[in-house]
């Protein structure tokens, strides 16, 4: 095997320093994706900086009523946390819709955000992939792409982001906290992942050397009605064909706040801003929901074999919106 250094960090500073000291390093969380990719030859880090011992493994109450989930909180623990279940049900549901029980026990919050696409061409080093090897081409374009993107893709890359959790975080207006050589910062979860454009090799807006330290769930969406729904090929342990996370707050009979994000449609969780804008101030009727969702999905450009994703996403969204709106209003 290709030898690599292994560093176990006990503090965030230690981790980022070790990362900086080993150009070509990767942070190691639960390893549920990175280790697989190393076996496949897709990833060949010169060093693994093990961050699982960092003191980032708790879910903390914030003074304003929000929550901060440390980057090392396991997916199972985050999903089961009473405050998450109570105040951010879409997040708990999204986490539980992902992977399998065993994987959720190992996978971390930070790692979940940084997992790579499961595009089969990305995972097969004998085939072209611009994400894995810029300039080599995209095998999926003419190949098998039923599971690929319908929104925001480029001729360089049609991969989707596989996370369920990230879709809920985007809809909930969560923020991703980062620590790096230039200090700490946070970015909205909805903007954390990128569209492929000309650089599909870059999945996220993370800067070199930055480490995800946590995710902040804002007070603004705490306790609002929210839900996640995912369609998949089997009842468990399958990536989404399409999914949606919705936060819907009504006041005085109209939509006061809407957060809608789609999963498995794009290279990142697809925050449906157009749909949200259309809903603001509108009465929560079926017609209004349809209008809003259709506005958003009008931008879809399905590939040869994935046109089904558009109506699927549409129906999932309408179903969840309808369930979150009080029956009397629809």
């Amino acid at each position: 095997m290709k030898p690599f250094a292994y560093v176990r960090a006990d503090s965030v500073e230690e981790a980022t320093e070790a990362f900086a000291a080993h150009p070509g390093a990767r942070y190691l969380g639960g390893g549920t994706n990175l280790v697989d990719l190393m076996k496949l030859g897709v990833e060949a880090p010169v060093a693994l900086v093990d961050v699982t011992r960092l003191p980032l493994d708790t879910v903390a109450e914030l003074p304003d009523g929000g929550l901060r989930a440390g980057a090392m909180v396991r997916n199972s623990d985050l999903a089961a946390h009473p405050a998450v279940r109570d105040r951010y049900p879409a997040l708990s549901q999204a986490l539980l819709a992902g992977a399998s029980g065993q994987l959720r026990n190992a996978a971390t919050t930070g790692g979940n955000l940084l997992q790579r696409t499961r595009c089969p061409y990305f995972q097969d080093v004998s085939k072209p992939c611009n994400k894995r090897e810029p300039g080599s081409g995209c095998g999926a374009l003419e190949g098998v792409h039923r599971d690929h993107a319908v929104l925001g893709h480029s001729d360089q890359c049609i991969a989707t982001h596989p996370s369920d959790m990230a879709v809920a975080l985007a809809a909930l207006d969560a923020r991703v906290e980062l620590h790096g050589p230039e200090g700490t910062r946070s970015v909205p979860a909805a903007d954390f992942h990128r569209l492929p454009g000309l650089h599909p090799e870059r999945d996220t807006e993370i800067h070199p050397g930055e480490l995800i330290t946590g995710v902040v769930l804002p007070a603004a969406t705490a306790g609002l009605p929210s839900a996640y729904r995912k369609a998949r090929d089997r009842a468990s342990y399958a990536f989404a064909l399409a999914s949606v996370a919705v936060v819907l707050h009504l006041a005085d009979g109209v939509v006061e706040r809407a957060g809608i994000a789609f999963g498995a449609l794009a290279h990142r969780p697809w925050r449906a801003r157009r749909a949200e804008d259309a809903l603001l101030g509108a009465a929560p009727t079926t017609a209004a929901f349809e209008h809003a969702v259709d506005l958003e999905l009008a931008a879809a450009e399905p590939l040869r074999d994935n046109a089904y994703k558009v109506p699927l996403a549409r129906r999932l969204a309408l179903d969840v919106l309808g369930r979150l709106a009080p029956p009397a209003t629809t």
């Binding site: 499961r118 089969p120 090929d233 089997r234 009842a235 468990s236 342990y237 399958a238 990536f239």
Partner: peptide, 11 residues
């Protein structure tokens, strides 16, 4: 076995 979908327990 992530992409070739044999039934999971939940199925």
């Amino acid at each position: 076995l992530a992409s070739y979908h044999v039934p999971a327990h939940a199925d």
